[in-house]
Write a protein that binds this DNA or RNA. Structure first.
Lengths: 334, 334
DNA sequence: GCCCCTGTTGACAACGTTGTCAACACGCCG
DNA sequence: CGGCGTGTTGACAACGTTGTCAACAGGGGC
């Protein structure tokens, strides 16, 4: 900028005015400056401008794992909203590790991002308090923050969706329905279990701990849990799986056990190609893009000055019936 | 920082020294400063530091669409490498639109990112030249940059992989093999077509334009192309699909037409759940994470000062045989 | 007592911008 | 001709940090 000023024979400030299209510059002078800008290939340093302005026009997004389609739909939506508001997006991946999450969040704060959208892995977000006081705005999505923190939060209706899925199985005559979920340390897993219990209770069915298995969503654990349930004197005739990964593990395990004793299956989270499987898989679908968009929009509303109390938004889920829960029908075309 | 200095009764510079752990500070003074930092909850402004330092310790990633699992695996790898090098990652989504890509890239450059990893949507990257001269480092991934630009590029072996997939079909006795690919405007689509032709030529089979359809990967177009081919006097007995999206469209179309005249199928790109379909889908799998990692590592090698000529890295693909290309076998367990 | 060396500290400028305010020239009005 | 408003321009400080260099005090050797 200094070079441009020298080349055009004007002061720094005049170049700044021209660059920002401020009024009150002689058209002839402006043309000289533009000429110099072109000749020197000058481009304003946005970081410096923002340092001066005291904002960064950027927000940070912390997710668990981009390669999960749930998170990628969510990040895409956040990115779109950020760009619409003229902000750039930092993306960080916590790998579901609270320590890493904290490290990433603090790195974002050190860059003075204007706001944060967080899919929290940890349960203690005390480390955020100083940042909040410093003016950073935070929205949580998919899971609520740890206790003691007031912040906008956007969640799926996990309990309601799970209840809907389980009710679907009950409507189709199932009485012994198993629940295979993620670790109870995870908020969504607990909520979905709650929905499962609600649905059983609503139908007057007993809750049987032997039909519930929660833990890490790895293939061995899922396979072992399935085997244990199959060995019960009164094995389940239907399964409700607590997330997409577990659904796929169960599908793989069931593929090894075809035939009429194959239990029905309803899963939380939609799966790509789920409609092409035989039998089709009925799912409770979330709206990842809706979650991301809503959270980002709440964030920008705060950045625009909204000082209301923290909101908690619950997004509905959608039951997509694809023929499971009945006797295996022929494949349906979407 | 000024407040900390005042609180500790020292000069600004001393606080800076303490914060950076520079030697030559009296331990007692350092303790006073630490005390003040704690009391005031001071946290260094990284943006200001980097402005001073003349770097931003951030890189930009431009991809076409996060919700495509190919891109999400790639971005995850880039993010991991960036963090390992102490850099933050800006993510931008071009939606495969050259104008948007350009806008995002220039926005990143205006922030003075140290480097860029780009999955190019456009074919003219002339707008990057001034940025390159200004010292930005760029690595292209998945597709090469437009002509006239020398930059590190990491590609999958598109032609080789396609040839391998088509050869698999030929080995299983197919002589009429169709190619359904993305728009010929897309580099990878052209390369995969080339591989298809190579494999035919290597087997002494004729190239029949009636068996080739390229265009936007939307369901209607794919369905129409399939119908047209099925209506040929000598319809194809096997299909090679040019990317994952087209493969799923073809699978949906084929699901409506079961039976023994169903053509065999091999697709470029692996699909989640592909092993659970009946029949299983054989694919030519790329390594999205490998692409991202390699591109990011080349980038950081440049940032570390490597001044060699631009490299072009070709990553191998992997044929995953899942029983397609033969008469439909029973489902296999992974 | 003088000099030099070392350890500690601070003043100042700089990174690349923009906000504030003052200066200047010009023309118009009274 | 003096005063004043307007249009144009520039000097300076500031954003929050760090590099450069100088200043100062204390101690040891001559």
């Amino acid at each position: 900028m200094r070079d441009v000023a020298a080349a055009a024979g004007v002061a720094l400030k005049t170049v700044s005015r021209v660059v920002n299209g401020e009024p009150g510059v002689n058209p002839a002078t402006a043309e000289r400056v533009h000429e110099a800008i072109r000749r020197l290939g000058y481009r304003r340093n946005e970081s410096a401008r923002l340092l001066r302005a005291g904002r960064t026009a950027s927000i940070g997004l912390v997710i668990g794992d981009v390669s999960d389609p749930f998170y990628s739909g969510l990040s895409r939506a956040v990115e779109a909203v950020a760009r619409r508001h003229g902000h750039l997006l930092f993306t960080g991946v916590s790998e579901e590790d609270p320590a890493l999450e904290r490290e990433i969040v603090l790195a974002f704060c050190a860059r003075r991002v204007d706001g944060l959208v967080i899919v929290p892995a940890g349960t203690d977000h005390g480390y955020l308090c100083p940042e909040l006081e410093a003016g950073v705005v935070v929205a949580f999505v998919d899971r609520p923050p740890g206790p003691g923190l007031e912040a906008d939060t956007v969640l799926s209706d996990n309990a309601g969706g799970a209840a809907q899925g389980v009710a679907h199985l009950i409507r189709h005559g199932h009485r012994r329905i198993a629940f295979l979920g993620d670790s109870p340390a995870i908020f969504t897993a607990r909520e979905r279990l709650r929905g499962y219990r609600d649905a059983l209770a609503a139908a007057g069915l007993p809750y049987d701990e032997a039909l519930v298995s929660m833990g890490r969503p790895d293939p061995q654990r899922v396979r072992a849990a399935l085997a244990a349930m199959a060995a019960l004197p009164d094995p389940p005739t239907a399964l409700f799986t607590g997330n997409g990964l577990i659904t796929t593990h169960v599908l793989r395990a069931l593929a090894a056990r075809p035939g009429p004793d194959r239990p029905a299956l309803v899963g939380f989270d939609d799966l790509e190609l789920a409609d092409l499987l035989t039998p089709g898989v009925t799912v409770v679908a979330q709206d990842p893009a809706g979650l991301g968009r809503t959270a980002a929009e709440l964030l920008f509303r705060r950045l625009a000055g909204n000082r209301g109390p923290a909101q908690r938004v619950l997004l509905p889920t959608r039951l997509i019936v694809r023929g499971s829960g009945e006797i295996p029908p022929p494949a349906r075309v979407a």
